[in-house]
Amino acid sequence: MRIQTSKLTKVYRGKVRAIDGVDLDVPVGMYGLLGSNGAGKTTLMRILAGLLKPTSGRVVLGGHDITTPAGRVAVQRTLGYLPQDLGVYPDLTARRFLDYIALLKGLDARSARRRRIGELLEVVALGEHADRKLRGFSGGMLRRVGIAQALLADPRLLIVDEPTTGLDPEERIRFRTMLSQLAGDRTVLLSTHIVEDVAQTCRDLAVLAKGRLVFQGATGELVSQAAGRVWNLTTSGPAPAEGRIVAAVPEGAGTRYRLIAAAAPHPHAEPVSPTLEDGYLALMGVAPC
């Protein structure tokens, strides 16, 4: 399902401009949406999921204008949504929770519903915990329940908002791998402020800063934003004054710095290949703030 927004703007009461004239084009497949906290990602996700009305602009998902009631219903029929602050009913088991959501999603036939829930619990590796109450689940397990509920109706569009925040490294890797596997012929829109998650799963991405779209394209293009501008410098002296320090690792008597700078920040600085994080930071360094 293709997502297209045109001049999309959301102004909250109090004149807070959360989204500002965003023109976005998201193809089928895994797509990353990067941005710092407060960049407007969650607002954009909520608009795309039909939870918020934009102040102005167009939002078309799979040919349906989500700002119309009919369009919203049509999109939500093919949508799976995992919100950033996913909550559950703590007194229900994972199976009962999914059963309730499945009923609300219109999976009325009991046997088909049970079969689907059983399949999904296996997909998210919760088959053994299906009949445990959700109050005892870890953060990672709850996110997996969240993904299972999002997949109940076999959606063409999966919107996941900051799904790996707060997860331990192992759970994070497992979760993002699962998202990649789910992409297939779906559109999976992954919103996050963790660059590594996008680097490991997405071929294309967009970057939001203060409600504005400052980049959209392939991850390689974002990496190239930092080409020739990333440097390694090991010194026992003071931190380099020029450039933006990305990393500082103590090494022997000195410190090894990784920097982003337009020109070599020190005579001994060595150029290195940029990563997606370097590209993102280089972009944000020149983005309008």
């Binding site: 039909g50 219903v73 949504y81 919100p83 909550g87 959501i101 609300l104």
Partner: peptide, 18 residues
């Protein structure tokens, strides 16, 4: 309060019916 409203609101079931 439980944070379930986001998931429920993204379901096409009518909100008035809910």
């Amino acid at each position: 309060a439980l944070g379930v409203d986001g998931v429920l609101s993204a379901i096409p079931a009518g909100r008035t019916g809910r």
